[in-house]
Nucleic acid binder design. Structure first.
Lengths: 127, 127
DNA sequence: CTGCATCCCTGTTGATACTG
DNA sequence: CAGTATCAACAGGGATGCAG
């Protein structure tokens, strides 16, 4: 092993952190909404439908903090706020798409495994 | 738009579900532990250090249910249980590696964005 | 229109103790 | 050694009301 286990763990934590961000409930959906270009708050909200104001704000703030999204405030009345992916955000989309495609391709296999697992769990519970 | 929005949403949910699994606190770390080959429960636990017994069990069960991991019980005394990646599990490793590499490559950029964001947040708080 | 503050409920996580 | 059970602590997430 060339790199120490500690270093590998640190790397893994970094990866885990990013995976947690993109694996959370709304991030992917929001990023996809923005994939087509700049949108304002209420447009994103409408596009997702079921998200609460609070969670959309929270998600967008996290994305902004990570440098994936730019936030632009127009000091008009009523106020208007636009969000768009940064270059880093667009870049993130690539590996995410790879994973997404894998997920779609293999969803069937996974669901089949789940059904099988649940079936034997039921059998055991019934015994 | 060829596919209905509803269909796209369904696909997204599937992707989201899988991303949630691999984005959770321990999954990636456990999968990496098993990347090198079969290991028993306590070996994995030792390899991770900070994980609790309960969470390791939970994580392994979820991976088993999704068909990513095989669980083999040796009815010896004391008992021995081995875990190993299934072909599907190994397959999952590929897109995850892509994302991991991206994450490591761009960790610097992300952390820089975070520092910048936090700094302006502090400035605003101080005002 | 955007978004912060608050309350509250829920699921998740972890520490501890116990069993086959 | 591997796993379950229980309980306490905490974070995620939604509803509502207020503010710039």
């Amino acid at each position: 092993m060339k790199r120490s286990n500690l270093q590998l763990t640190t790397e893994c934590r970094r990866v885990s952190t990013i995976l947690s961000r993109i694996g959370d409930k709304w991030t992917i959906l929001v990023v996809r909404e923005l994939g087509g270009g700049s949108k304002r708050f209420s447009e994103i909200k409408r596009g997702l439908g079921s998200i609460s104001q609070k969670m959309l704000t929270t998600t967008l703030r996290a994305l902004e903090r990570d440098g994936f999204v730019n936030r632009t405030v127009f000091p008009t009345v009523p106020p208007r706020v636009d969000y768009e992916l940064t270059p880093l955000g667009h870049d993130l989309l690539k590996p995410v798409r790879t994973l997404s495609e894998w997920a779609l391709t293999n969803a069937e296999r996974i669901e089949k495994a789940q059904r099988k697992f649940d079936a034997s769990a039921d059998r055991r519970a019934a015994a």
